[in-house]
Computed example of a mutant assay.
Amino acid sequence: MGQKGNTTEEALGYSLKKLILKMPFEKITIRDITEEAGLMRPTFYNHFKDKYDLLEWIFTEEIIQPAEALIESNMMEEAVRLMLRRMEMDLDFYRKAVRIQGQNSFQDIIFQAFRDIMKRVLESKMKGKHMANRLLTPDSIAEYYAAVSSFVIIRWIKTEWEVTTQEVAQAYTMLVAEPLDEMIRELYSHT
């Protein structure tokens, strides 16, 4: 687990990460989070709408954002390897987080984070291009990559045996055999 953050968001994130190791996520209250962080309860709502929003912020800040440049450069295997290494540094937290089920499950949070970044990347790469297949829109391609990415990460976190980040990154590459840029070139033509 990282050190206590300098910003309010980081302090709240650190607090949630500490608490989730002690008790089930469902039992953690906003009051628990703010007390652990040494903050007033209303401060939480200046930054996050609920504890699921905070959980999404943690995943995005710690895992997605550091890999964003690699994703934008179509270096997906390297991006996945980096994300996995960062998750590995806090594996106990992520193993607890993956147990969160229901409407705001951790799997949903991971899927949404990947979908959002992939959609941004695809929309920027596809500007000025004409779709060759109406089914394969930036939205549907982003959802596909998000599904594969979240599947691989969830599967790795849940694994009971030791699987290296290298093996997981290779599995990801095998599942997504065709690089994103090549698929874009095939599906879209310049207008």
Rank of each mutant, 00 (worst) to 15 (best):
N6K: 14
T8M: 09
T8Q: 09
E9S: 14
E9L: 05
A11S: 12
L12K: 07
L12N: 06
G13V: 03
G13C: 07
G13W: 03
S15C: 07
S15I: 08
L21Q: 12
P24D: 08
P24I: 07
E26V: 12
E26Q: 14
I28V: 14
I28K: 08
I30L: 12
R31D: 15
I33Q: 06
E36K: 12
E36L: 06
R41K: 13
P42G: 08
F44C: 06
H47W: 05
D50P: 04
Y52H: 15
Y52V: 08
Y52S: 15
D53A: 14
L55Q: 05
E56I: 03
E56Y: 07
I58S: 04
F59P: 00
F59M: 04
T60P: 01
E61A: 13
I63G: 01
A67L: 03
A67S: 09
A69P: 00
S73M: 07
S73C: 03
M76N: 02
E77W: 00
E77L: 02
V80F: 03
L82K: 09
L84M: 04
L84S: 01
L84A: 03
R85P: 00
R86A: 04
M89S: 14
D90K: 06
L91N: 05
D92C: 11
D92M: 10
D92Y: 04
Y94M: 05
Y94S: 04
K96C: 13
A97D: 05
A97M: 11
V98H: 02
I100V: 15
Q101F: 12
Q103I: 05
N104M: 10
F106C: 04
F111G: 02
Q112P: 01
R115K: 12
M118G: 01
R120I: 02
E123R: 13
E123V: 14
S124A: 14
K127G: 09
K129W: 11
H130Q: 15
M131H: 12
M131V: 13
A132Q: 15
T137V: 10
E143I: 09
E143C: 09
S150I: 02
V152W: 00
V152R: 00
V152Y: 01
W156H: 00
K158H: 06
T159M: 11
E160V: 05
E162G: 03
V163G: 00
T165S: 02
Q166L: 05
Y172L: 01
T173R: 08
M174F: 08
A177Y: 12
P179C: 09
D181K: 08
M183A: 11
M183L: 15
I184Q: 05
R185S: 14
Y188S: 12
Y188Q: 11
S189C: 13
T191E: 15
